[in-house]
């Protein structure tokens, strides 16, 4: 069925064409979003439809910054995603090191307990969490979005622990005999070894935090505290009434760009680590 000598057999040409049609369906809505953001209001509501704007208007891309708190939204999202993933990665990788390489009594029980907590979905705990954070006055701040993440991420611990099993114990034993401290072993030996796995997991986690929507809707009430996702959600609600679709689409394009760039730069690592997660999971 699959032989490389038949690269351009009739079957393969048909499949190639089908894949191209599929690709058009995947990318067309996104391109349409981009072209809409450059159209005039007239063109948006023209019949028959205007696919490509006559003149590429960039006005909306300067207007969005004053039409809503877009800049502070980006700033808030960066604060949340960077602090969660950087500190959370540190705590997660330390825990993974302890689970994989240190002699700790009951560590397998502890690991199983951590794993079983993944089963509990966020909506099932969001109400008590909300009351908890309200009671200490963290409502309408970024703290409820940041603090839980600082304690680590069980998915990341799982994958890093898995990855660490391929690191020979002898390296760590040797360092112990040399009198290195445990934190020294982690910082000088373990962390450099697991860096590629850490990077891939960090990117995936960053995307998850960046794109989160439910938790921010619960906690953030004043516009200046909105994360980027809430800001564009609000753009949508506000300007749809005025049918200013170019403006809404321009804001959405801006919100997609950072992750798109991260993806295009790291696509190989991202795609690989996602594929591994399924084979192992």
């Amino acid at each position: 069925m699959v032989l490389s000598s038949k690269k351009w057999s009739t079957a393969n040409i048909i499949i190639f064409i089908l894949l191209c049609i599929g690709a058009v369906f995947m990318i067309a809505p996104l391109l349409w979003m981009v072209t809409t953001s450059f159209k005039t209001k007239m063109e948006v509501f023209a019949l028959p439809p205007v696919w490509i704007p006559e003149e590429w208007l960039t006005a909306k891309y300067s207007e969005i910054w004053t039409a809503g708190p877009l800049l502070s939204g980006i700033k808030n999202s960066v604060i949340v995603a960077v602090s969660v993933t950087l500190i959370g990665t540190f705590t997660s990788s330390l825990a993974a090191f302890a689970l994989a390489k240190l002699q700790v009594p009951h560590k397998n029980k502890i690991f199983l307990m951590l794993l079983s907590s993944i089963m509990i979905p966020y909506p099932a705990v969001m109400i008590p969490q909300f009351i908890m954070f309200s009671n200490i006055g963290w409502n309408d701040t970024l703290l409820p979005l940041i603090v839980p993440g600082l304690f680590g991420n069980v998915f990341m611990i799982f994958f890093l622990r898995q990855y660490l099993t391929s690191v020979p114990n002898a390296i760590i034993e040797a360092a112990k005999i040399d009198g290195s401290s445990y934190f020294g072993i982690y910082a000088k030996i373990v962390f450099p070894l697991i860096k590629p796995a850490v990077a891939a997991q960090l990117i995936l986690w960053f995307m998850g935090v960046w794109n989160d929507y439910l938790a921010p809707t619960i906690y953030l009430t004043s516009e200046e505290n909105y994360t980027l996702q809430l800001v564009i959600g609000n753009f949508n609600a506000m300007y749809a009434i005025q049918t200013d679709y170019p403006l809404i689409m321009a804001a959405s394009v801006i919100s997609l760009l950072p992750m798109l760039i991260v993806f295009l730069v790291f696509q190989k690592q991202i795609i690989e680590s996602v594929a591994i997660s399924a084979v192992k999971g």
Partner: peptide
Amino acid sequence: FRVIYYVPVISSLAAISILWQWA
């Protein structure tokens, strides 16, 4: 192809929902 088919996955659900609401 792999990259093109994967772009919607990494895109924020909020932006995608806004786009499709209009679509």
